[in-house]
Design a protein around this nucleic acid. Sequence first.
DNA 1: CACAGTATTTACTGTCAGTAAGATATGGTC
DNA 2: GACCATATCTTACTGACAGTAAATACTGTG
Lengths: 191, 191
Amino acid sequence: MVNREHVLDAAERAIRREGAGVSIDAIAHEAGVTKPIVYARVGKRTDLSDALAQRLADRLIEAARTAIGKRRNPRTQLVALIQSNLETLAEHRELFLFVAGGASEDMPQRTLSLAERSAIPLAKQLASWRTTAGLDPSVAVAWSYSIVGLLNLVSMWWITESDQSAEQLAEQVTELLWSGLSGAPPKLPPR
Amino acid sequence: MVNREHVLDAAERAIRREGAGVSIDAIAHEAGVTKPIVYARVGKRTDLSDALAQRLADRLIEAARTAIGKRRNPRTQLVALIQSNLETLAEHRELFLFVAGGASEDMPQRTLSLAERSAIPLAKQLASWRTTAGLDPSVAVAWSYSIVGLLNLVSMWWITESDQSAEQLAEQVTELLWSGLSGAPPKLPPR
DNA sequence: CACAGTATTTACTGTCAGTAAGATATGGTC
DNA sequence: GACCATATCTTACTGACAGTAAATACTGTG
């Protein structure tokens, strides 16, 4: 039986093999069916992208949960979160590019699709932590999109252009997210 | 005379009118020429995207310079930088989507194209500030991509889904970038 | 005016997303 | 087992578009 999950699995394999520009025909072939079956199961290309974005977001969250799991120091937990994000996206490089890259039409839904599937759960956590800490939780959504956007671009850059280790990069990014810029400039001169 | 700049101007108008999915034919028509002229002047779609990414990055940098210009307090300067980024990208919404969205092939070059044209100049500044402050400048590149990624996604989200004011959002994001997360969680529980 | 060289357009190719219409299988009914 | 109804799959098509090659108009020069 060729159900929706089967097609999505095949799509992931096809993307891994042929890259983000893979055709629907290639995905159908990988699934052992023909194109209209793919359309019947998952809809058009943007729907496929959404479904795979959800899968990727789930993996990111699961990886983060596992990585954080044992740690107790909050800053160390942040390092682990960032590093797991880097490594998970590197592992699913082509899938990441597929869901992030989408077509020029139906932007910005493509870019936001993956982002909000990570950002919305993160926002819930952040809001809850801040409430517990007696802090204003209203920044949670903005901060979540901030963190997700940061992680997405840093990961993209690291995957393709940087050669430093995930550990070192995670430590650097943690330093920014944990302590902020306030320590850095004596005075920000005009650029 | 129909030179390269003329074609790029026309491309911007066509993108503003028809959105990020605009065809090369439409751009050629807007420029008052035919398609092969566009190809002769600017190359293929990815080259066009690169050229327009450079223009957009230049505008972002210029707007930031102007916004920062008068301020003297570093934190206030950061608020101004973020707000000018939000407003500039909102003003050039479709152009932003065009250069950010690219095709699924030649990813991740498309996403990185706009980003690095903003991040590389920013990294130079950051490195110089930190050196002046007696701090380690080696984080500059990673921090620049971090900040640019953060701004890109927050802007995308704000443009399409958020209804709060640019001022308020800029203040929230500044709080994160300036002071970091360290104040927030009493202890990060496992997610 | 003829001609060489260049700029420009027309017209084509190949690819691909998405779909409609036709073919084939499935299963129930007498 | 013959027949029909319904669901499922495939073939074959349409339309749009990126990119290019071949044909055409235009320019100055002897």
